[in-house]
Every structure is written in C-alpha cells, then in structure tokens.
Computed example of a mutant assay.
Amino acid sequence: MGAQWKAKHKEEAANAKGKLFTKLTKEIMVAARNGADPDMNPRLRLAVEAAKKASMTRETLERAIKKGSGQLDGNINYEKVVYEGFAPHQVPVIVECLTDNVNRTISNIRGLFRKGQLGTSGSVSWDFDHLGIIEATPASKDADVEMAAIEAGAQDFEVDEDGTATFYTDLTDLDLVQKALPGQGFTVVSAKLGYKPKNPVSLDGEALNEVEAFLAAIDNDDDVHEVYVGLAG
C-alpha cells in the first residue's frame, strides 16, 4: 500500500509538472509573436523567467520561442479567450484560456460550468481590477514591503502568513516594478497581468468545498491558462 501511495503521488507530481510546462510553453509561444528577443519583449521575458524557475530545459524553451515567432514549420497558433461566470454559491470567476481550437474549448468550459453559471463578457469582470500582479519573497530580514512598494512604484501590496508579498501595479508598470523590486530587497517569484477581486465572497464548510472542487475541475482542463476567483481567504 505504501509503495502504491508513493507511486501515485510521484505520478501526480509528474503530471502537475507536465501541465505546468504545457502552460508555460503556450505562454512563451503567444508572447513570442511580438518578437523573439526577451530584452525587447517584456511579456516574453516574464514568460522565459517563469520557465527557467520551473527548470524548463534550454532546448524546450528555445523551441517554444522559435515556434511562437514563426521560425519553425508547423507552428501552432494559440488564441487567448476569456470566459466569465459564477462558481456555486454565486462566487465570481474569470477563466483565461490559451487554445488552438476555440470550439473545443467553449464546449469543455460549458460542461465545466454546469455546476455554476457561465456568463457573458463583462458579467463579472466589473467586479475585478485588471492589473499587474507580482509575487516576491524578502531576500533579507531587513526588507520592508511597504517601502519596497513605494520605491518600486507599486499601487498596493499584501503579505501572506509565510512572508510572501504580492505587489499590485498599473498594467503598464508591471515590467518596471518587477525590475525594481530586487533593488529593494525582494526576489521576484512570478509577474503577470491578472485580476484582483473587488468584493471577495467568504465561504466555509461544505459550500467552500463545493467551490474548490469546481475550481479544481476547471484548472485541470488543458486549455485553461489562469483562473481568477472572487473568494476571500
């Protein structure tokens, strides 16, 4: 039983890493459409940094850039599509997908939203702020998150129990702020454009379990790139 359990969790970890690599590869390919040089393409630079942190091989990374920028034959074009709706208990959800087949994706998303409610464009996005989101960890005990936010040009910040800081920026300031944070004593873990809920819903018990199961099923779909939810805590 113990060996089976270990094998199962090893397989789950491998599958999770494979799914992460698939997401990162898609993001690199989409970003590389605007230029194959990360120094001249902020979105590509962020995607490449995320791939390196996930230990993606250089060969895989370079191939994704070449595919996305049209330097290789058989290029797959991924399109970004965004869906809005509600999880059970009227919890607002925004789902970003990167797909090479929109018909397949919408069919899957409709199926996944059967336990919730799929809305139209704008049905819940008004209840979110669209901004830059940077996760960072203090590089030293002296790092001051409030001072770092001010000096780097972030709009706002939050700190988790484990000390991880989330900095929020204007959409156009994401690259500048994430470049400035190391000079303020913070190591950037991730940086992306995303959504922050304005009025997160608080749930517990069985209701929270229902919502978490719903979100896990959506996140498990291969075309789903990011899931943003208006859930507190």
Rank of each mutant, 00 (worst) to 15 (best):
M56L: 03
K115H: 15
D223G: 00
T172V: 09
M40R: 15
A148V: 11
A152M: 11
A36E: 07
N103D: 15
Y83T: 13
G185I: 06
K196A: 12
N108R: 15
G2E: 10
N103P: 03
V95H: 00
A148C: 12
A51N: 00
A143N: 11
G68V: 02
K115G: 09
G153P: 08
D223K: 05
A213M: 12
P42I: 07
F86K: 02
Y168A: 00
D129T: 14
D162S: 08
E158A: 14
G85P: 03
G194P: 13
D156G: 08
P92G: 04
S55N: 12
R63C: 08
E206V: 12
A50Q: 00
L44Q: 13
I76G: 03
G68R: 09
Q178D: 02
K179R: 14
F186D: 04
T164Y: 06
Q178H: 15
K66H: 09
I106F: 12
P92C: 04
P200F: 10
N220C: 00
K6T: 11
I28S: 03
K23V: 01
D73G: 11
E212C: 05
E210W: 12
E12F: 14
H89M: 05
V224M: 08
G183W: 12
T60N: 05
E161L: 14
W126H: 13
I133T: 01
T137H: 04
D73C: 10
S69A: 14
N41Q: 10
E226A: 01
P138K: 10
E151M: 05
A143C: 13
D223V: 07
L176N: 15
M40E: 07
Y83H: 10
E96K: 04
D100Q: 15
G111C: 13
G153Y: 01
V81D: 09
V177D: 01
G85Y: 07
K8E: 12
T120K: 14
L193N: 11
D170A: 15
F21H: 08
L176E: 13
F157M: 06
V188L: 07
A143V: 03
K80M: 10
G185L: 15
K53E: 06
D175M: 06
D160K: 09
L176Y: 08
E135Q: 00
E135P: 01
V227G: 05
A139L: 07
D160C: 13
Y168T: 00
N103W: 05
V95L: 02
L171S: 12
F186G: 00
E151I: 12
M1T: 15
N220D: 02
G163D: 08
F128K: 04
G205V: 11
E62K: 04
E12P: 12
G122S: 09
E96G: 02
D170N: 06
F167S: 03
N101H: 06
L112V: 01
S69L: 07
T99P: 02
L174I: 07
K23H: 06
N41R: 09
I134Y: 02
N75P: 03
T25K: 14
